[in-house]
Each structure stands twice: as C-alpha cells, then as structure tokens.
Amino acid sequence: MKKIALFPGSFDPFTKGHQDIVLRGLRLFDEVIIGIGRNARKERYFPLDQMIHLIEEAFQEYPNVRVISYDDLTANVARNEGAKFLLRGLRNTTDFEYENGISQVNRHIYEEIETVFLITSPNLAPISSSIIRDLHRYGQQVDEFLPYKLVNQTV
C-alpha cells in the first residue's frame, strides 16, 4: 500500500523550511501532497494561484510531490486524498503545543490518520512565513528564504 502524507498549511509564503520538511518527508513516504488550506479568517498576502505555481515549479523534479488547495477540514482532505499521514514541521515548543491540539482533533475526525512531526533543520528554524511577509511588505529582498524567485516583488 502506498504511503501518502498530506503536508497542510497556509504557506503564505512557502519557505525553504517548508521545502526541507517535504524533502525529508519523501524519505518516509511514497508521496507528499502539499495542501494549501484556505482560512476564512485570514486574507492571503501572496495570491493562492501564484503560490501554487511557485511551489509546483520548485518541485518539478519530484513526481511524487503534488500541490493542492482546499477549503475543508484537513482531516477530511487527507481522507479524500487517501493520505493516512499528516506531515508537520516543528521549529520550537510553541509549535508543538499548537500542533499537538490540532493533531488530536484530526485523529478524532479521521481515526486512521497519524501526524508525523519532523524537527526543523537548525539552520532553517528562524524562518517563518510571517517574518518573510513583513520583510517583503517593507521592500526587503526575501529570495534567500524561499525555494523559488519572486518575479514580481510587489503584491
């Protein structure tokens, strides 16, 4: 049976830290689906279509990586995609506290789902999407933190 993991997040933007989790996840899983969830409470900074395109481009050499967007509960999406695993990255204990609660709820909704946590590589731990958004918003170059180049520096 194929081991499929869903890597859910808002990925606004998708960083080298996220890329690292996906590439390391490929050592554990046959397929990793990067799932960009839509959050009704948050307005995206980078357009969803642009982010999907950039992530697909970053993983074009990996046929076992797919990118989807969704507007549903993550556990439901995992079930519908045939994923028995959720892949999550942890930078610190704050991330763990937050992710632990979510993993319990996902397990309640979809009993067969297991959440697999990977500790972020130390050199990538300081990178967060919110920091990158702030840098970009105020005109700073952010490409060194991303696995792709932002062609249009304005949003």
Rank of each mutant, 00 (worst) to 15 (best):
E56C: 12
D95G: 06
V65K: 03
R133S: 06
I21K: 01
V67F: 05
Y148L: 11
A75P: 02
L28G: 01
I68T: 07
P147M: 06
N92E: 11
I109C: 11
I127K: 13
L6I: 03
H18G: 02
F11A: 08
H108L: 11
K84C: 00
A125I: 15
N76V: 08
F29L: 01
D49S: 15
Y70I: 00
D12N: 15
V22Y: 00
L26C: 00
R107F: 07
I132W: 07
V155H: 13
T94R: 13
G37P: 06
R38A: 01
Q153I: 10
E56N: 11
I119W: 07
S121F: 03
E112P: 06
A5H: 03
Q50Y: 15
K16T: 09
E112H: 12
G25A: 05
S129A: 15
A125T: 15
D30M: 00
R24V: 03
F11W: 12
V67H: 02
V22P: 02
R79C: 06
Y110F: 15
N92R: 11
G139H: 13
L26R: 00
G101S: 10
E114S: 13
L26V: 04
Y62L: 04
A78D: 04
F96P: 03
A5S: 10
D143F: 02
I113S: 05
G35D: 01
I52F: 12
F46P: 01
A58I: 07
N100W: 15
T115R: 09
N64L: 03
T115G: 11
D30V: 01
P147K: 04
K42Y: 05
L26P: 00
N106L: 06
A78T: 02
R66I: 03
K2Y: 00
G35M: 07
K149E: 11
F7S: 03
K84G: 06
N152L: 07
P126R: 15
A75T: 02
E61C: 00
V77G: 01
